[in-house]
């Protein structure tokens, strides 16, 4: 589903990613770990076609990111640090805007269904600026799932959320995983990654240093690698 071959991303002399290669099969739930500045967000941005690699090749769902970026965009849902939503628009208007951009045919029923799922149906006519961080992130999930993507890229989706919001977002994620969809998630919580993900990737200073099944790794081992 996701094939990354020897990708390099350089910002001047600095190499944010240095020859990273891995593959993720359909339906796999993979956690990407690494210290701050390890290159996780840079990698996620390349996979999401927000950024081009300096060298190397990325193929998602059979499409090259260089030749067919729009085909990839149609197949991925992305959630980053920021909600990517318009504060001046209501929750419904935000989703309607993105549904039109994705060309979703059953947009109104899909918007209603997703707002129901993320628990924001009662707030559908409220402007996003009035939302809490947790509500904002739940609406981001709805935006990312709007176009029925088979792949979800999540860049620290639990960052800044309180306990209740974290539980709600994790439940949404569990539901998505239960549908056997492909998920790549960056997270700082080692326990969460080991318990939930099938495979663990670890980035260190732009290099992929761990690519193993979660059940082959121990917590202390992983902690040591991350602190290195």
């Amino acid at each position: 589903m996701i094939h990354v071959q020897k990708i390099v991303k350089a910002f001047g002399r600095m190499r944010a990613l240095d020859g990273v290669s891995f593959s993720i099969a359909q339906g796999q739930y993979v956690a990407l770990l690494g210290a701050n500045g390890a290159g996780k967000t840079t990698l996620m941005h390349i996979l999401a076609t927000l950024s081009r690699p300096t060298a190397g090749h990325v193929e998602i769902a059979g499409y090259s990111s260089k030749k067919h970026p729009n085909s990839i965009r149609q197949r991925i849902g992305f959630i980053g640090h920021a909600g990517l939503l318009y504060d001046e628009l209501t929750a419904e208007e935000n989703l309607r805007f993105f549904s039109r951009m994705y060309g979703i045919s059953d947009s109104e029923s899909r918007i209603g269904q997703l707002l129901q799922e993320v628990g924001l149906l009662a707030r559908r006519h409220d402007k996003v600026r009035t939302f809490s961080r947790g509500m904002h992130q739940r609406l981001s999930f709805a935006r990312a799932l709007l176009h029925y993507p088979p792949i979800l890229l999540l860049d620290e989706p639990f960052a800044g959320l309180d306990l209740n919001a974290t539980v709600m977002v994790k439940n949404l994620l569990d539901k998505f995983i239960a549908e056997e969809k492909t998920v790549l998630l960056t997270v700082h919580d080692i326990d969460y990654a080991l318990y939930n993900a099938k495979r663990i990737l670890v980035l260190n200073r732009g290099k992929l240093i761990v690519n193993k099944a979660a059940n082959e790794l121990r917590r202390d081992q992983l902690q040591k690698v991350l602190e290195a």
Partner: peptide
Amino acid sequence: ENARMHGLLLCPVD
């Protein structure tokens, strides 16, 4: 602001 441009760039639009 809030990286909204990324939301637009993630859409399948030229």
